[in-house]
Design a binder for these strands. Structure first.
Lengths: 206, 206
DNA sequence: TAGCTTTTGTATCGATCATTATGAAATACT
DNA sequence: AGTATTTCATAATGATCGATACAAAAGCTA
C-alpha cells in the first residue's frame, strides 16, 4: 500500500495511504466546500485519513490547500498547450472556454471552478490563500494576453485591440461560468455561453 | 436615537441604534467577508451592537444575512428601471454591466459583488443561503431575458437570437467582474470589460 | 413614585474549530 | 530476536463558533 515515500526515509512503519490519492480527495473536498468552510473533520472523512496523518503528510490546512490548488491548476495548464496550437487566438480562447464549461460540469467533480469558488471571500487569516488562487488566475490571464499578442503580431487581429481587456473578459467569463455552474447550469448552457462569448471576437479581426 | 420601531411596540426601553443603519453595516461586513466566514464577533464589531441586541433585532445570523441580501439586491433593482428605458437591449445590458463595474469598485464598499462572493461555497448547513443568493441572480437573469425578448419582438434583434444564452453570458460577465474586482482590478479595467462584452452584441442585430 | 416592559452589558453555554500529545502498532536494520 | 524509527488510532488541547441566561438600566403608564 506504500507509495511516494520521501527519499530520505529509510525505516519505520510504512504509510497506509497513497499521498497523491488522498491529496486529490482533499482537492475535491476543497473544490466542493471551499477553503475555510471545509473543516479538518470534513477533510479527514473525505480523504480516509486521520488528522495526525494529515498533518504529518501535508503540514497544516493551509499547506494542504495550496498543494490542492497546485494539483488543480496543473490540470489547467494542459489548456495552455492546446491554446498554443490553435490557429487563431479566437479559436484558442473558444477552446479554453469550452474546456472550462466541460470542467465545471464534470460528473465526478464538484460544479464550478476551484479557483473561483473556494476562496472568494474569507477572514483576514486566509488572505494568503486568496492571494495564491488570485496568482493562478493571473497566470491564466497572462497566457491569454500572450496568445492575443501573438495574433496581433501576426496581423491576424486589429492592432488597436487591447489584449489585456480581452484577457480580462475571457477570465471574467470563465469565473462567471463557475458561478452559473454552481447554480445548477448544465454543460449545454455553459457551452452556449462559451460560444456566445467568442462570437464577438469576429469584430476584432484585422 | 430610536427609530423604525415595530408597530405593536408600546413601552419599554428604547433601542439605542438605528435598525436600518446597523443592517447596512452588517451587509457591508458580509459583502467583504462572506456569510460563513464573517463571525458574529465580526458583525457586532462592525455594527456597533452587542450580540444579544443583534439576535433580538434580527433573529439569528442566517436571517440577518438574508435581510442584508435583500437590502443589497434592492439596490440592484434600480438597474432594472434604467434597463427598461434604454433604447435597445444592447444599451440596457451595456448600462447594467457598466453599473456593475462601478458598483464593484466603490470607494466606500468592499470590492466585488455580494451575490457573487459572499456565498460561493460553504458547508451543507449554509445551503439555504446559497439558494437565496442564487435566486437573486436568477432574478437578474430573467430581467435580462425579458429585455432581450422585447427587442426581438420589436424586430431590433435577430429572431434566431437565444435570449437565455445572452442573459447567461451577461450574468457570467458580471459575476466574473466581481472576481476580478476582488483580485484588485480597478474601475477602468472593469469598465473596459463591460464595453468589450457588449461590442459583440452588434452581431445579433436584425 | 410604583409597576410593567423592553433593551442593555456581562458572562457564559455546549459545539466545533485547527492542531497536537500520547502511546501502541508496524516495519527495517543489526 | 532485539532495537530503532515511523505511522497509527485515541483523545484531548486552547480558541473560537453561534447563540443565550441573567440582572441591571431605561423608558412609558398609572
Amino acid at each position: 500500500m506504500k507509495e511516494t515515500e520521501s527519499p530520505s526515509r529509510k525505516t519505520g512503519r510504512p504509510l497506509s495511504f497513497d499521498r497523491k490519492d488522498v491529496l486529490e480527495k482533499a482537492m475535491l473536498a476543497f473544490w466542493g466546500g471551499g477553503y475555510e468552510t471545509t473543516s479538518i473533520t470534513d477533510l479527514t472523512a473525505a480523504m480516509g485519513v486521520t488528522a495526525p496523518s494529515l498533518y504529518a503528510a501535508f503540514g497544516n490546512k493551509q499547506q494542504l490547500f495550496l498543494e490542492a490548488v497546485r494539483l488543480y491548476a496543473g490540470d489547467h495548464t494542459v489548456l495552455e498547450q492546446t491554446m498554443a496550437v490553435a490557429p487563431t487566438a479566437r479559436d484558442a480562447v473558444a477552446q479554453m472556454l469550452r474546456g472550462a464549461a466541460i470542467l465545471y460540469t464534470g460528473e465526478t467533480t464538484p460544479p464550478g471552478c476551484l479557483l473561483a469558488s473556494s476562496a472568494a471571500t474569507g477572514s483576514p487569516d486566509a488572505a494568503y490563500v486568496r492571494d495564491a488562487v488570485a496568482a493562478e488566475r493571473r497566470k491564466v490571464r497572462n497566457i491569454v494576453i500572450r496568445r492575443i499578442e501573438l495574433d496581433i503580431a501576426k496581423g491576424l487581429m486589429a492592432s488597436h485591440t487591447c489584449p489585456a481587456t480581452l484577457a480580462d473578459l475571457t477570465l471574467a467569463v470563465t469565473q462567471g461560468m463557475s458561478v452559473l455552474a454552481r447554480d445548477g447550469a448544465d454543460r449545454a448552457r455553459l457551452l452556449a455561453i462559451a460560444d456566445a462569448a467568442t462570437t464577438g471576437w469576429n469584430l476584432f479581426k484585422a
